[in-house]
């Protein structure tokens, strides 16, 4: 009798100790796991409702349709993990698209146009980073100025849409590498490469760890001798670069540059990053989580179009989901930050 009791007790003890190890190590993964759960539930629900939702074609389209969002989400993850925010990404994306389309339509060769689109030299991201770091402007305000600036510049380039006929750019979208019924486009490959690079940089470089340290406590990071200033400027440069790359991808996707593209996209991006498990207060989050967030967003959109309902439901549902995640995150953080 006693032996049985002890083994049960042991088992309970080992389970609780496993749980303790798990929560002490991986509490910050929980929101991302929750996002994965939400995604699976969505997919299963949609599959049982429509029967043909989780099909190779539909799933491949999910990546294709949301490639630009995924690229933006990677950059935004860097910024938000430092406890910053970048409102300019949607406008930067639109500006890049219309700039590229305009250059190509006036006969600028693609090997010049694309590097300009991706932007060398002085960029908006660098400007924003400098404002935030050296002039102590709140990220929200600085990137707000960036939003205005890029949007206005987009209209300066052109007030209306410009078609792109450059074959090499359209190739990015039109080419489909197939495996059975699955396919992937070069834009999808770009998105995945960006996600993978972002995840590796965040996890395996000192720069990436400094990003996390700044989000945890900027003052501590400085006292620990980390290069805070350079890192903070860099995350805005990265986010700006992602915005431009997304502009390139979106131009390929839509076959045109359009100055009204990406209005409100910054909010979608922030929402998917948060849903993917990144804390808006900084310090916690994963690039891969943001990718999951993008899939959640994309799936909701696609479910709604399957149902034939109003697309406006997307933002209502995403808004509600955002709220739930924010409240849950607050609870998780409050719990895990309480020292035992």
């Amino acid at each position: 009798m006693t032996t049985v009791q002890t083994t049960t007790a042991d088992r309970v003890a080992s389970v609780t100790s496993f749980l303790r190890t798990f929560t002490s190590r991986y509490a910050s993964v929980l929101p991302t796991l929750a996002a994965v759960g939400v995604l699976l539930l969505l997919l299963m629900g949609a599959q049982s409702r429509f029967g043909n939702f989780v099909s190779p074609g539909n799933m491949s389209a999910l990546l294709l349709d949301n490639a630009y969002l995924m690229i933006l989400a990677v950059g935004m993850t860097f910024v938000i993990v430092t406890a910053g925010i970048d409102l300019s990404v949607g406008s930067v994306m639109a500006f890049t698209g219309i700039l590229g389309a305009s250059m190509l339509s006036t006969g600028v060769p693609v090997y010049i146009a694309v590097p300009i689109m991706l932007g060398g030299g002085a960029t908006i991201g660098l400007l924003l980073g400098v404002l935030v770091q050296y002039f102590n402007v709140q990220p929200f305000i600085a990137t707000l100025a960036g939003l205005f600036l890029a949007r206005g510049l987009a209209y300066v380039v052109s007030l209306s849409s410009i078609r792109v006929e450059e074959p090499s750019l359209l190739w990015l979208q039109a080419t489909r590498f197939r495996l059975g019924d699955w396919y992937i486009t070069p834009t999808g490959i770009i998105a995945i490469v960006v996600v993978a690079t972002g995840a590796l940089v965040m996890h395996f470089t000192r720069f990436g760890r400094t990003v996390y340290a700044i989000g945890g406590s900027e003052q501590s990071a400085r006292l620990m001798g980390l290069n805070v200033a350079r890192t903070k400027v860099m995350v805005y440069v990265i986010s700006g670069f992602c915005g431009r790359l997304a502009g390139l991808v979106l131009t390929a996707y839509s076959g045109a540059g359009y100055p009204r593209n990406g209005i409100g996209t910054e909010l979608d991006v922030i929402a998917v990053v948060v849903i993917g498990g990144t804390l808006l207060t900084g310090g916690r989050g994963y690039v891969l989580g943001s990718m999951v967030g993008v899939f959640v967003f994309g799936t909701i959109k696609s479910v709604i179009s399957f149902m034939g309902a109003e697309q406006s439901w997307t933002h209502i549902i995403v808004g509600a989901l955002l709220l739930v995640f924010i409240v849950v995150q607050r609870a998780i953080v409050a719990r895990s930050d309480r020292p035992r």
């Binding site: 910050s28 996390y212 406590s217 620990m224 930050d337």
Partner: peptide
């Protein structure tokens, strides 16, 4: 403590 509580 001047460390980063969010890291390991």
């Amino acid at each position: 403590v001047n460390l980063c509580a969010n890291l390991s």
